[in-house]
């Protein structure tokens, strides 16, 4: 379970998050939508403290962190209970796919190497990269790199995986394979918070949709509520801009 209460974040005088409350149940897939500059990526990065929130409280599982008083140990706790998939993959370039996945298991979770290797191979097979274990990131396509990124997060067995626009940097023909993997692990009941622009994905896979604009949550609800009958004017405008007027699916 993840609970955010009153999260604010300012860069200098510019307040990017203006008090966010968010509750995510175990096994839920939450999608955060919003125009660029709405603060959705910043919010996601506040959850694992890649950005330090100015104020508020973050709860992941049994870790409760008060942002005003957070110390090094608190931050490590949050990071060890979460995992992140980045827009630019951010794989460790000097390590193979297998080593990328093993790194956290061995160095952070202190698991024995053999066990870590077994677990990593298993997860890489799940994302369809069983044949690329010894490939370096430079030898992989964008889609494959992102799937290694997903495997790296998944192997840690975190309470929540944070996805920061996981398909935005990919060539259009590679988006499908990555979304397919995310869809697959979503079905296994892993808690996920996803920032994305893929509307179809949001509609099909998520249990809960959050629409953000100007540093606040404007509206949230089930995908049906948000996509079919949005209540707020800003949500309607955003959806109108981002979804085509005509749908060509039969």
């Amino acid at each position: 379970m993840i609970k955010l209460t009153g999260i604010t974040k300012s860069f200098g005088r510019n307040q990017v998050l203006k008090g966010i409350d968010l509750h995510v149940n175990k096994g839920e897939v939450v999608v955060i939508l919003g125009p660029s500059g709405s603060g959705k990526t910043t919010l996601l990065r506040c959850i694992n403290y890649l950005e330090r929130p100015s104020d508020g409280q973050i709860v992941i599982g049994d870790s409760i962190v008060d942002c005003k008083r957070a110390g090094k140990q608190d931050i490590l706790q949050l990071r060890r209970k979460s995992a992140m998939v980045f827009q630019q993959y951010n794989l460790f370039k000097h390590k193979t796919a297998l080593e990328n996945v093993m790194e956290g298991l061995v160095i952070v979770q202190k698991r024995p190497k053999e066990e870590a290797r077994e677990r990593s191979v298993q997860v890489l097979e799940k994302v369809g990269l069983g044949s690329k274990l010894d490939a370096y990131p430079s030898e992989l396509s964008g889609g494959q790199q992102q799937r290694v990124g997903i495997a790296r997060a998944l192997a840690l067995e975190p309470e929540v995986i944070l996805f920061d626009e996981p398909t935005s940097a990919l060539d259009p023909e590679l988006v499908g394979e990555v979304l397919e993997v995310i869809r697959k692990i979503a079905k296994e009941g892993i808690t996920m918070i996803v920032v994305t622009h893929e509307m179809g994905f949001a509609r099909d896979v998520s249990n809960h949709v959050v629409f953000m604009d100007g540093g606040v949550i404007v509206e949230e609800g089930t995908p049906q509520e948000i996509f079919s009958s949005p209540k707020e004017e800003r949500t309607k405008q955003f959806l109108k801009r981002i979804t085509p007027e005509w749908s060509y699916t039969i």
Partner: peptide, 29 residues
């Protein structure tokens, strides 16, 4: 690149681990 350091932090490494495991070997090369 900064992204790899962030990835190391996101995995749960402390700053010493991130420096010695991720930054240093690449910087050396």
């Amino acid at each position: 690149d900064r992204g790899q350091v962030e990835a190391a932090y996101a995995v749960g490494m402390n700053s010493y681990q991130a420096f010695s495991r991720i930054v240093l070997p690449q910087a050396l090369a």
